[in-house]
Design a protein around this nucleic acid. Structure first.
Lengths: 266, 266
DNA sequence: TGTACCACACTAGTATACAAGTGCAAGGCC
DNA sequence: GGCCTTGCACTTGTATACTAGTGTGGTACA
């Protein structure tokens, strides 16, 4: 694999154009640094294992090390950065084990939520879901991956909200960060997007029909299909991953893998 | 309600005697500050709404503001502190809505995990679970609440691990922090502890018998019983809570309530 | 006596300087 | 030529100084 080149202020990404749904606005320079770094990581502008230095980031953003440090601390807490004292900070590799943990949590939470949604949903929800599906279809037709991902996120969030505990979505968002990096890494072809869209249609159909069990089953199939694709991507780009079967690297036994998050400003 | 007195270096808790299961060791002064503050909050030594100052904490711990700040950033991310810029930092009130979110997540995750555990568990697991139950019984007999809570945590963690994704427990730990504060707040009577113990026995019985559905049902009943007790405690100590029906304080509409966690050092 | 205003003490946010430690590379030695 | 050593450049960790802003209490005034 090509050794990740050390980033200089010039090579650091210039702006945050793609930017997956950022968690929330944060105050001041520290907040700006956090948003900037996070979207750079999630969008792949800062790929896994890319080294970064507090000094360089600070110079790039025109602030001192202190707010940059605060941002790095938060991102380390989210599992997106790895800080080695006196050595350096790097973008965390995508840990397949952590992705599997996220898969387990998402399946548990979203299947239950969607079952409740089938029992609780009203006509307004149904209208929103259908509108979202139509937009997804248009994004598929345009092969607009970014738009599709945004719509996908919104639909899953709405389904969780319909389950009665809208803020549980934040926990899903946390574990989803690793998965999002994979998604930006892969150039999903139109056929794949269409497949996802069809799975969404099945879920929504069952939810609107009020069939809780069928909705949960459809959600389970959907999440497992997405997860299976992650594994395929990992085999194609093993240098970005940790725990890929092709590279029998031994993970530490007690390693902390599941990743979480950070509270947004209330 | 009595206005929480401002903490001075003298009034700050001296040590970390009770200390709920700390997440993980951290490096240096920042790590020490984190551990100290976290256990002080979870144990109730720093009750909800207690104001604290970076300067005072730093003086108390004999370090500068910088590592204390790092600890505060992490704890804010876990939802245990509320930082208001230029105003002050306080221990976060226990948000009943966030506790309910945690309840939803725990039920989703732990019921599924325990169902899988019933299908996967081996004799070694069964032996561990039975041993834990015996220790719980002794703790109940002694009315040793701290010991019982520790055993309770360990049992739930083992059940999740038996489900096949041991690290998912960390996500549960994150949402459990708020609940733990409630538990330390309440002086659970022997009858209550015995009731919890009986519920644990039912779960373990079904798991060992390999009855996945019954195990999940028992776990669901157990978690809901615990959650119901939280609500009762909240009505008794409304000054520590947010979102208590008795105090119709309006929570901000878009408030971030579910709280998570922080990655331990890998 | 009540009220408006102002000054002060304290807060967190940021910038900067210094300390401790690591890794690498160049140069001397075998 | 190969290997060991030593020094340097760079990293993050910590301490400290300064900034900007907020809440409060005291004081002057009506």
């Amino acid at each position: 694999m090509p050794a990740p080149r050390r980033l200089t202020a010039d090579t650091l990404p210039a702006a945050t154009p793609v930017a997956a749904a950022a968690p929330a606005a944060r105050r001041g320079a520290a907040g700006a640094a956090y948003e900037w770094l996070r979207s750079a990581i999630l969008s792949g502008a800062l790929p896994p294992l890319a080294p970064l230095s507090e000094n360089e980031v600070a110079a790039r953003l025109g602030v001192s090390r202190t707010p940059v440090r605060e941002a790095i601390i938060r991102l380390e807490g989210e599992g997106l950065l790895v800080v080695r004292p006196q050595v350096g900070t790097t973008v965390a590799p995508i840990d397949l084990d952590a992705v599997a943990d996220g898969q387990f949590l998402r399946e548990a939470v979203e299947c239950r939520a969607v079952a409740l949604a089938a029992a609780r949903g009203g006509p307004a929800d149904a209208r929103d879901l259908r509108a979202n599906l139509r937009e997804q279809a248009r994004a598929v037709a345009r092969n607009d991956q970014a738009a599709f991902i945004a719509l996908d996120d919104r639909m899953h969030q709405q389904l969780v909200a319909m389950g009665g505990r809208p803020n549980v979505w934040h926990a899903v968002e946390d574990v989803k960060a690793q998965l999002d990096r994979v998604r930006f890494l892969s150039l999903e072809d139109p056929h794949w997007l269409a497949s996802i869209h069809a799975q969404h249609e099945a879920i929504v159909r069952h939810v609107i029909a009020g069939d809780a069990d069928a909705a949960a089953s459809a959600m389970s199939r959907h999440l497992r299909a997405v997860f299976a694709s992650v594994d395929a991507i990992a085999r194609g780009r093993p240098e970005y991953f940790r725990g890929v079967p092709a590279l029998p690297e031994r993970p530490a036994a007690t390693r902390r893998t599941l990743r979480p998050p950070t509270r947004r400003t209330p």
